Computed example of a mutant assay.
Amino acid sequence: MPDRSPLAGASRSWATSVWGLFVANALSSRLTAEARCGGVRRVQEHARGVALAPPAAVGPTGTRGTTVAFWPDAEIFETTRCSFAVLAERFRQVAFLNRGLEISLTDERPAGGARKVRFRFPEGVRDFVAALHAETDAALEPDVIAFEREDPRMAGTREVALMWGGSREERLRSFANSRFTREGGMHVDGFHDGVAAAVAAWARSRALLTPQDASPGADRIGEGLTAVVSVKLDRPEFLGPIRGWLGGAEVRACVGEAVREHLGAWFEERPDRAAAIVDRIIRDRHRE
């Protein structure tokens, strides 16, 4: 069988740098991948997903990084014209999800001159939540709650940022390995579990809820909440017809535990802000 992988004959560092190219490679009439690592520049050429030769060292280099050039296959796509706006939004999203990563996009097609955008967000998902909240045209609340933790039980990391604002809707974006999980998944369920547990625990400690009262539901906790939940996993379990839902019971448990602990600690450190948030949730609950 023909070798359709850009990894054939490659070193581990080369394999890591081009691991995400399978789909682009299969959908391109031509693809060139270049990796610069360890003082060596390596190049591999593909045509319609088939490697024309193993990766070849073509000379020395003093830089590090990966460059990929590909031409969408006109026999597969109705159009091969790329949308600058769509690409820019996706690159902006990836930059948010990978703190400190710098991505630039240049469109050399316009006759009046090239268009270029650059994205870099030093605070990662914290900046993402602030940007999502700003889209509501509401005044920016003073506190974005954010944390990142690694957990071997889920073989990955959890990065979460959230804030409550003045709107009545929930704005939540979830991702797994920087991929948008349109249908949600266990990481989203774990996030809701953790927020509900932290809110209920703080409310009961202040006698805002009695032991007999049920905990507020996700609908009440989510009012005015803007959040980003991002997990990066060694072995993600994508489910559903378009693989837009993330599975894994351990992911739910680990995310829920981390959110409950971090948000609970934040409530204890900022009792005035916690009181305003929890009182609104409890007050709205009693109006039902």
Results as ranks from 00 to 15, higher is better:
Glu75Lys: 10
Ala111Pro: 00
Asp73Phe: 04
Arg158Met: 15
Gly100Pro: 07
Pro122Trp: 05
Val188Asp: 01
Asp107Gly: 09
Phe191Glu: 00
Arg126Asn: 06
Thr61Glu: 07
Pro110Phe: 07
Asp143Met: 09
Leu132Val: 00
Ala131Asp: 14
Leu162Asp: 05
Arg179Ser: 07
Val86Trp: 06
Glu150Gln: 10
Val144Met: 08
Trp71Thr: 10
Arg64Asp: 10
Gly190Gln: 09
Asp151Ala: 13
Gly185Val: 05
Thr106Pro: 00
Thr67Glu: 15
Arg81Ser: 13
Arg64Met: 04
Gly113Thr: 07
Arg173Cys: 03
Arg92Lys: 14
Arg153Gly: 14
Thr106Lys: 09
Ala88Thr: 12
Arg179Asp: 08
Ile145Lys: 06
Gly112Asn: 08
Arg168Tyr: 09
Phe70Cys: 11
Val188Cys: 01
Glu169Gln: 13
Asp143Val: 10
Ala95Ser: 14
Gly184Pro: 06
Ala114Asp: 10
Phe70His: 14
Phe191Pro: 00
Arg115Met: 09
Val144Tyr: 08
Glu108Gln: 01
Pro122Lys: 06
Arg179Trp: 09
Gly59Leu: 11
Ala139Gln: 08
Trp71Ser: 10
Arg92Trp: 04
Met154Leu: 15
Arg81Leu: 14
Asn98Thr: 13
Ile103His: 02
Gly185Glu: 09
Ser83Gly: 07
Gly59Gln: 12
Pro152Cys: 07
Thr181Lys: 02
Val117Arg: 10
